[in-house]
Simulated assay, not measured.
Amino acid sequence: MNTTEKKNAILEAFHTRHATKSFDPSKKISDDDFHFILETARLSPSSLGYEPWKFLIVQNTELREKLKKVSFGAQGQLSTASHFVIILAKSNARTDSDYVQSLMTDTKKVPSETLLQMNQAYRNFQENDLNLFENDRALFDWASKQTYIALGNMLTAAAQIGIDSCPIEGFNYEKVNEILDREGLLEDRSYQASVMAAFGYRIDEPSRVKSRREYDSVIQWIK
């Protein structure tokens, strides 16, 4: 496949993707295909490379039913999706947190002398440029924004291999967090729910043709 063919295939995936409200419950995504989707999430970029996320794949029917009661935007998806994902965001991804320091030394293998310089620069970025230390919500919201990068990559990757999906924000965040916390899934509240996504195969074609604002109304070149 040459470059033009690749671009056309990608754009075709964007044109055919839609927010699927109900899936065919008899059709399941293969383990290999869903692992591919999860890898695009895991390999996604994040601000400062902090990877402030965790991906819960909720296949347990009892837990899905509990979530359905507090997730108005996932009524059809929770009952029918082949795979249902809750993306968690790190509650505290401060530069000086144990999480970040462990990530930098143990995972990214940053040398100690380099890490010292990075810590100073990144703390200034978080504290002064973005004002993230004003309250805990600011830090969570910053981490939550990173999860949407991974979410977008998952939706696009799924569409490119013929798998349907739906991003979901329609849920009561406090009640969902309470449910997940009772299940022991938030690691002592070091994570919180950020966004959900359902994956599977559409049972019906969308009733409306996809429409978007025109190119010139959303894109402005500054020369």
Results as ranks from 00 to 15, higher is better:
K27I: 06
Q101N: 11
Y99T: 13
D204M: 08
A138M: 12
T16K: 15
S144T: 13
L103E: 11
R202L: 01
T114P: 01
A143K: 09
A138S: 15
V218T: 11
I87R: 02
T61W: 00
N124H: 15
Y50Q: 07
N60A: 02
F34E: 00
Y201L: 08
T40F: 07
Q120N: 10
Q120F: 01
F23P: 00
R137K: 15
W53R: 11
N8R: 14
R189C: 06
N8A: 11
Q75K: 14
T3L: 10
D98Q: 11
Q160C: 14
A158F: 01
A197M: 08
M154P: 01
G170P: 12
S22V: 12
V58P: 00
E174N: 12
N135R: 11
L116C: 04
A9Q: 13
C166F: 03
S207G: 09
K175E: 14
D98G: 04
F34L: 01
S190T: 15
L38G: 08
S144H: 08
Q160A: 08
N131D: 09
S22M: 04
P111H: 07
G170T: 10
S144F: 04
S97Y: 02
P111Y: 10
R208W: 01
A13C: 09
V176Y: 08
A89Q: 05
K66E: 14
E65R: 14
K69Q: 12
S44M: 02
P206G: 08
R94I: 00
V85E: 01
N8D: 12
K145T: 06
N153I: 02
D164F: 05
V70K: 10
S144W: 06
I86P: 05
Q146M: 08
Q59Y: 00
E51F: 05
F133N: 14
M118W: 02
S97M: 05
A197K: 13
V209R: 15
V176P: 09
V85Y: 01
G49W: 03
F55C: 06
T147N: 07
L11H: 13
L130M: 15
W142A: 14
Q77G: 08
V218S: 05
F23E: 00
A19C: 11
Y122H: 15
H83K: 15
R17C: 03
T16N: 14
S91F: 02
S26L: 09
P206Y: 04
A193H: 14
G184H: 07
G49F: 06
T107H: 10
Q59S: 13
H83I: 02
Q126F: 01
A193C: 07
P45K: 11
Y173D: 10
S91W: 01
R202Y: 00
I57L: 03
L11I: 11
S26A: 15
V195K: 05
T61P: 05
T156G: 00
M104G: 02
A74Y: 05
T114A: 08
L151Y: 08
I37M: 02
W53L: 09
A197D: 05
E5T: 15
C166H: 06
A93Y: 03
T107P: 00
A143I: 09
I179D: 07
H18T: 10
I222M: 09
E39C: 04
P206S: 07
N172I: 05
T105E: 09
S47F: 06
P52L: 04
N131K: 15
K223T: 13
Q59T: 15
L115V: 12
D129Q: 13
F36A: 04
Y215N: 13
E178I: 04
R182H: 10
